[in-house]
Computed example of a mutant assay.
Amino acid sequence: MVIFLIRLLIFLGSAALGLWVASLLLDDFHLTTSGFLAAVVVFTVAQAVLSPFIAKMAARYAGAFLGGIGLVSTFVALLIASAVTGGLTIDGGAATWIAAVVIVWLVTALATWLLPLLFLRRRLEERRAGGPRPA
């Protein structure tokens, strides 16, 4: 159960980071303070549900697209989060959407890989040393 909660926090944190970075880099990508949490939660849930489904569909019908599953699921999750919440709006055209997908995908991928290393480093060090270390 603890591992599940840690993974959930990592996914939420990486989504928050990805959306925030995209809002900083793209003029037509807007996050409201009041709707940020809702946008993060909706994006994270959509991404978690869509990724395996899209991967299964691609494997069955279009194997060549398997490498782009993360980008496709990020696009669909952004679409859902912008449609469902008032906290995320993407006003620009196709170029803004493409840039947003790439930025959010890249940041969330890196954060999902790096955040566990940062937060679980102490736990790993404790295990290697044979027990908890003094504070």
Score class of each variant (00 low, 15 high):
F119P: 08
F119R: 08
P116M: 00
L5Q: 02
L79W: 15
R127F: 11
L26S: 06
H30F: 08
A48I: 01
M57F: 10
G93H: 11
L106I: 02
M1N: 09
L110Y: 08
R123M: 13
G67D: 05
R133V: 08
V40K: 01
G68N: 05
L88H: 06
P132L: 14
T112C: 03
I3M: 11
A46P: 02
L114C: 05
A109F: 15
W113K: 14
T96M: 09
F36D: 00
L71C: 01
G35H: 05
F36Q: 02
K56T: 09
M57V: 14
S34H: 02
P116N: 01
L50F: 06
W105R: 00
P116K: 02
A77I: 07
W105E: 07
A94W: 12
L17C: 11
L24C: 12
V102F: 15
I6W: 12
A94V: 13
G130Y: 08
R127L: 15
L115F: 05
V49Y: 06
P116V: 01
L50P: 07
L25A: 13
I10L: 10
G18V: 12
A39W: 01
R123L: 15
S23A: 13
G67L: 11
G92T: 04
G70K: 01
V104N: 08
M57N: 04
T85F: 04
E125G: 11
A55S: 13
L12Q: 10
L25V: 09
S73R: 05
V45F: 13
M1T: 12
T32S: 15
L78Q: 09
F53H: 08
I3G: 06
G92A: 10
R123W: 14
L17K: 03
R128E: 14
A16S: 12
A99W: 14
L26I: 14
A38C: 03
A109Q: 09
D91S: 14
L26Q: 12
V72W: 07
L79F: 15
V102I: 15
R127H: 12
A39L: 07
V76I: 15
Y61H: 15
W97I: 10
R121K: 14
L12C: 10
E125P: 00
R123G: 09
K56Q: 13
A94Q: 05
V107M: 01
R123F: 14
A39I: 02
T74H: 03
V40R: 02
S23C: 03
A94M: 09
L88W: 04
G18I: 13
F119Q: 08
R7Y: 11
T33V: 08
S73T: 13
A95H: 05
P52L: 04
L31Q: 02
I103T: 04
G87S: 14
L17Y: 07
V101H: 00
G18N: 08
V41Q: 01
W97Y: 13
V72P: 04
V76K: 00
P132N: 11
G87T: 13
W113P: 00
F65V: 09
G63N: 06
L24A: 14
S51E: 03
G93P: 06
A39V: 05
L120C: 06
V104L: 11
V40F: 00
V101M: 01
A55N: 10
G92L: 05
V76T: 12
A135V: 11
L110C: 05
V102D: 08
G131N: 10
G35Q: 07
L26K: 12
I6H: 11
L79D: 06
G131E: 05
G87K: 13
S34F: 01
S34W: 02
L12H: 07
V49D: 03
P116W: 00
